[in-house]
Design a protein around this nucleic acid. Structure first.
Ligand code: ZN
Ligand code: ZN
Length: 754
DNA sequence: AGCACGCCGACT
DNA sequence: GTCGGCGTGCTC
C-alpha cells in the first residue's frame, strides 16, 4: 500500500512533523513540501506546513485528514531545508524554528480589509440638506479625480461634515458600506540607478561581488572596510546587481542600527525606501512584508536577524553588516547566530553572502584566513574621514575632580559631587567647544546610577526577582530635589519601584545614595562643568524610534547641540560633520567577567565609537578613560593596531581551546525552585560525555544566578574543532530526565556567558 | 504551546 | 464529602 500520509510540521516545540491524511476535498493527492495547511490538532486547529512524506510510525487509527490548504504562497523549498538545518545545528525542535519563519503572528492572517462607503443604487433622498449634499459632492469629486473610496470617518472629514451626517446617509440607504482590500504597494528599487563614483578599491570589491552574484552559486566574502572606506556603497552596488539579475536581496543589520538613518541612504541610492523587518512591527506590516517576500515582489529587505527566516523564493545576495556585532546572536528560544546562519542560508540557496565590518570578528577573520570566505579589503579613500587618533587617559593619575552645582559650594562642609570626567578630558572638551565643535561622551550605561547604597548600613538595593542591582532612572526633565520621579529599575526583568525614603534594610532616613555613573548622572555633571553648552542625552530611552533619531541628526547637523551623551545607540551609523571629539567615560566597562571575547568586543565597540569623531579634512580626537592603560586592548586602540591585537587574541584562544579554535555548547538549567534546577544540573554533570576531545565544565551557578525568579545553573561543553558536538550533546541529554518544572536551554556556540 | 487528566489540601 | 491547585503527558 502506498504511503498516503503526509508529514506536517507545526509551529510548536514538538520533536518533528506529525502525520496526516491528505485533505478530503483535494483530489490531487499529497500537497507539496512547503504548502501551508490547517490541520486538526487535539481539540483545536493549527496552521502548519507540509514537510514531506509521513514517517508512518504512528497508528493509522490516529490519523486525521488535513482540513484545508491555505490561500497563501507556499514556503520555498530552500526555506524548509534551512529550517531543518538550523534545527539540527542548534538542537532545537524544527517546529520552534518554523515558528520564527511564520513570523507569528500575522503572516498567515487574511488580507487586511477596511469598510468603505460608496454611493448606492438607491434613488433620491427624501430630504436633501446642505451638509448631505456636500458629502455626495465630495464623493463625486473623488471619483472624477480617480481617488479611492473612504471610510465613514475619513469621508466626513473630507466633506467637512460631522460623522452624524454620514451615518445618516448610510441609514437612509444612499451610502452603502462595502469591504475593500487594503492594497500594499511594494517598493521597487531601481537597479539601474547609477550610484556614486566608486574609488578603485571600492570598484574592485564591488566587481568581485557583482560577478559572484551573476554566477548564481554560493560564495562567501568578508568585506573588511576600515572607517571611511565606503563599504556600504560597495554592497549597494552588489545589491543593484542582484536586482538586475531579478534575484532578491537581504541586508541584515544590528537591530539598533535600523532605528538610525540607514534606510535613508538606501533611498538615496535606489529611489525608494526599503522594506524593513524587525521585532517591533505591527501584525499588518508583518503580513504585508512577509507576503511581498514570498511572492517575489519584494526585491530587497533590510532587517534584523529574524529577517533571515523570511520566505525568499530566490535570494541571490545576503549582506550581514557589522558582522562582529554580538546582537546577531539570539540567546532566548532558538539560540542561533544570524551571522553564521546567513552563510548556511546562502549555501542552501546558491547565493552570495557578504559579511561586512570595519572590525571583523576573530571567527570571521579565521574563516577568511582558511579560505572559506574570500577576503575583500577596502582601504580608506583619499579625502574621506579616517579613524581619528585615540589617546588614553589614566584614571589612576588623572582622577576626576568633584564638582558643584550652579551655586557653587553651599557651605564649608559641602564637598560637592563625585565626577566621572577627568581633568584632561574636561580641558579637551573646553577647547573643542570654544572652536564651535561638537563633543560626544560615550557611556554605555542607561539611567542615573547603576547602584544605590545605604551609607548607614552598606546595604545595596537589589531586584527582588533577580540577582542584580536596581538601576536608578530619573528620566528627562525631572528634578529630583523638587519631588521629581526617582525610580529604581531592574534591567533584566523590568521590575521598578520608587527610591524609598528610608533604607529598606536598616530603616535609616535619607541614607541612600547613588553609586557609579549612568548617562543621566553624567549629564548633570556635564551641565555643571560646561554651563553654556547645550547638552542632550541619546539612549534607547530618549531615541525610541526612527523619528527621534532623525530629529537628533537634524539638530546635530544644524549645530543646535554642543554635547551628546550617548550609549551604544550612538556607536552605530550616525555620522555628524561637526562632531570632532569623543570621550569614552569608562573604557574598561565590559572587560571584567569571564567572557573570552570581552577584550575583542571592547576593541570593536570603542573602535566604532571612535569613528563618530572627525570629518573629511579635520580628523577628530578620541580620549578613552581607563584604569588600566597598559591592557593590550587599550594599547591596541591607542596604536591603531588591530592586527597585532587580534593576532594575540587569536593565539590566546588557540591555547585555551576557545572558538574559533574549539567548539562550545552551553547548557543553562533554570527553575523557580533552586533545588530542582540544581538537581538537574548535577545529574547532567554526572552524565557528562566522556568522548575524546570533549570536556564538560560545571555545573556552576550562572553569573546571573537568578532572573525573573528562576534560579540558573550553567554547564559548558568544550570540544576540539572536529567533534560533532550536536551528536555528543543529543546523546548526553537523552540520559537525563528533566521534570517539566525545569527548563533546559541548549546554546550551541554561545556568545553570552551570563 | 494548549489542553486534559489526575491526585492531594481547604472549603460550601 | 467536593472544588481546585498545578505536575505530567499527549497531541498525528
Ligand atoms: Zn541601611
Ligand atoms: Zn529583576
Amino acid at each position: 500500500m502506498p504511503n498516503s500520509r503526509t508529514g506536517v510540521l507545526l509551529p510548536l516545540p514538538v520533536s518533528g512533523p506529525y502525520d496526516y491524511l491528505p485533505p478530503a476535498n483535494e483530489p490531487g493527492g499529497l500537497p507539496a513540501r512547503g504548502t501551508l495547511v490547517r490541520v486538526p490538532f487535539g481539540r483545536r486547529y493549527l496552521e502548519g506546513v507540509v514537510w514531506g512524506e509521513g514517517a508512518g510510525d504512528v497508528d493509522a487509527a490516529k490519523l486525521k485528514p488535513i482540513r484545508d490548504v491555505l490561500e497563501a504562497p507556499p514556503l520555498p523549498g530552500v526555506l524548509c531545508d534551512f529550517i531543518d538545518w538550523v534545527a539540527a545545528y542548534t538542537l532545537h525542535p524544527p517546529g520552534a524554528v518554523l515558528k520564527m519563519a511564520l513570523g507569528a503572528p500575522g503572516a498567515l492572517a487574511p488580507p487586511e480589509t477596511t469598510t468603505v462607503l460608496r454611493r448606492s443604487a438607491a434613488p433620491q433622498l427624501p430630504r436633501m440638506t446642505e451638509p448631505r449634499q456636500r458629502v455626495l459632492d465630495t464623493l463625486a469629486e473623488r471619483e472624477r479625480a480617480g481617488l479611492g473610496l473612504l471610510g465613514a470617518a475619513d469621508l466626513a472629514r473630507a466633506a467637512g461634515v460631522s460623522a452624524g451626517v454620514v451615518s445618516g446617509l448610510v441609514g437612509a440607504g444612499v451610502l452603502e458600506p462595502v469591504s475593500s482590500r487594503r492594497e500594499f504597494a511594494v517598493p521597487l528599487p531601481d537597479g539601474d540607478s547609477p550610484g556614486p563614483v566608486l574609488s578603485d578599491g571600492q570598484r574592485d570589491a564591488a566587481d568581485a561581488l557583482g560577478i559572484s552574484v551573476s554566477k548564481r552559486e554560493f560564495e562567501a566574502f568578508l568585506l573588511h572596510g576600515v572607517t571611511g572606506s565606503g563599504k556600504t556603497e560597495v554592497y549597494f552596488d552588489a545589491l543593484g546587481q542582484a536586482f538586475k539579475e531579478n534575484r532578491q536581496g537581504l541586508v541584515l543589520l544590528p537591530e539598533i542600527a535600523l532605528a538610525a538613518r540607514w534606510p535613508e541612504r538606501f533611498e538615496k541610492r535606489f529611489g525608494v525606501m526599503p522594506l524593513t523587518w524587525h521585532s517591533r512591527m505591527t501584525p499588518a506590516a508583518r503580513r504585508n512584508v512577509w507576503r511581498a517576500v514570498a511572492s517575489g515582489e519584494a526585491r530587497v529587505v533590510i532587517g534584523a536577524r529574524s529577517a533571515l527566516f523570511l520566505p525568499f523564493p530566490d535570494l541571490g545576495l545576503i549582506v550581514v553588516d557589522e558582522e562582529h556585532d554580538a546582537s546577531y546572536k539570539q540567546d532566548e528560544g532558538v539560540a542561533y547566530n544570524a551571522r553564521d546562519m546567513a552563510v548556511v542560508r546562502a549555501k542552501l540557496g546558491g547565493a552570495t553572502v557578504v559579511l561586512a565590518s570595519a572590525t571583523p570578528s576573530l571567527e570571521t577573520m579565521e574563516n577568511a584566513t582558511q579560505g572559506r570566505y574570500q577576503y575583500l579589503h577596502l582601504p580608506e579613500r583619499h579625502g574621506a574621514a579616517t579613524l581619528p587618533r585615540i589617546d588614553l587617559i589614566d584614571l589612576k593619575r588623572h582622577g576626576p575632580e568633584r564638582w558643584y552645582g550652579p551655586g557653587g559650594p553651599s557651605g564649608e562642609d559641602d564637598r560637592g559631587q563625585v565626577g566621572f570626567v577627568s581633568p584632561p578630558l574636561v580641558e579637551e572638551t573646553r577647547t573643542a567647544l570654544a572652536a564651535g565643535e561638537q563633543v560626544l561622551f560615550y557611556l554605555n550605561r542607561r539611567g542615573y546610577a547603576p547602584l544605590t547604597v545605604c551609607r548607614a548600613c552598606g546595604d545595596r538595593i537589589a531586584c527582588p526577582h533577580c540577582t542584580a542591582w536596581l538601576v536608578e532612572h530619573r528620566g528627562p526633565g525631572s528634578v529630583p530635589d523638587r519631588g521629581g520621579r526617582r525610580l529604581l529599575v531592574c534591567h533584566h526583568c523590568g521590575f521598578s519601584r520608587p527610591v524609598p525614603p528610608t533604607c529598606p534594610s536598616c530603616s535609616a532616613e535619607g541614607t541612600l545614595f547613588p553609586c557609579g555613573p549612568g548617562v543621566e548622572r553624567l549629564a548633570e555633571e556635564v551641565a555643571a562643568r560646561f554651563p553654556e553648552a547645550r547638552v542632550v542625552l541619546a539612549t534607547s530611552d530618549t531615541l525610541r524610534g526612527p523619528a527621534e533619531a532623525l530629529e537628533l541628526g537634524r539638530r546635530m547637523t544644524a549645530g543646535e547641540i554642543d554635547i551628546v551623551i550617548g550609549t551604544q545607540i550612538m556607536a552605530k551609523g550616525h555620522h555628524f560633520p561637526l562632531l570632532t571629539l569623543v570621550g569614552v567615560i569608562d573604557g574598561d566597562m565590559g572587560l571584567s567577567g569571564g567572557d573570552p571575547r570581552a577584550a575583542e568586543r571592547t576593541y570593536q565597540l570603542l573602535h566604532q565609537v571612535a569613528g563618530r569623531a572627525g570629518r573629511a579634512g579635520r580628523p577628530g580626537r578620541v580620549f578613552v578613560q581607563t584604569l588600566d592603560p597598559r591592557a593590550p586592548v587599550m594599547q591596541a586602540l591607542r596604536a591603531g593596531d588591530p592586527d597585532t591585537f587580534m593576532a594575540v587574541e587569536s593565539r590566546e584562544r588557540q591555547m585555551t581551546g576557545m572558538p574559533p579554535w574549539g567548539r562550545l555548547v552551553a547548557l543553562i538549567v533554570s527553575a523557580e525552585d533552586e533545588g530542582a534546577a540544581q538537581a538537574v544540573a548535577r545529574a547532567l554533570g554526572k552524565a557528562a560525555p566522556e568522548a575524546p576531545g570533549v570536556r564538560v565544565l560545571g555545573p556552576a551557578p550562572a553569573p546571573l544566578s537568578r532572573i525573573r525568579n528562576r534560579s540558573r545553573f550553567r554547564l559548558l561543553l568544550k570540544a576540539e574543532k572536529g567533534v560533532r558536538v550536536q551528536a555528543v550533546v543529543r546523546s548526553w541529554l537523552q540520559k537525563v530526565k528533566i521534570p517539566s518544572s525545569v527548563r533546559l536551554q541548549v546554546d550551541v556556540d554561545p556568545v553570552s556567558f551570563l
